[in-house]
Amino acid sequence: MKDASARLLVAVDGSEASAAALACAAAQVRCEGRSLTGVFVVDTGWADYIGNDWQSAAGARQGFLDYVRADQERHAAAARRQFEEATAGLADCRFEVLAGDPAECLVARMADSDAAALVLGRETFAVCGRPSVKRLPQTLAAKLGAALQLV
């Protein structure tokens, strides 16, 4: 069993949903002396979703993918700012940007870290994700069980 004072992971995207999750996570850090990692996931599933293939010319569907990536960069930057503001004055807090499927990345990050729980806003990543991200809480609840704190 993981230590109650162990690290928390919180999914951050710069939105109101992730602000609520971040506030909840930061409160636990203050009260219980936990450490905190904020995570933003650059969703790499867009190419398959829009049916892009690797033969497409740069001006075809790739143009939209570059537009999506730029949008995700903006959200990643907003997530970092949001995390830094929420954790100002707290020790042992760090922010990471991962790339991949949001659900898979968060499950893998939980598995290979010492984190005791993942704190997630109900609509986190909905501002920049594919439609299936709407089911992220259900997917993570099934895969993480008690280690998920849904805000």
Binding site: F40, V42, R69, Q72, E73, A77, E96, V97, L98, A99
Partner: peptide, 10 residues
């Protein structure tokens, strides 16, 4: 990974 220049790094 830093969010700056993600397009180039992927």
């Amino acid at each position: 990974m830093n969010e700056q220049g993600l397009i180039d790094k992927l």
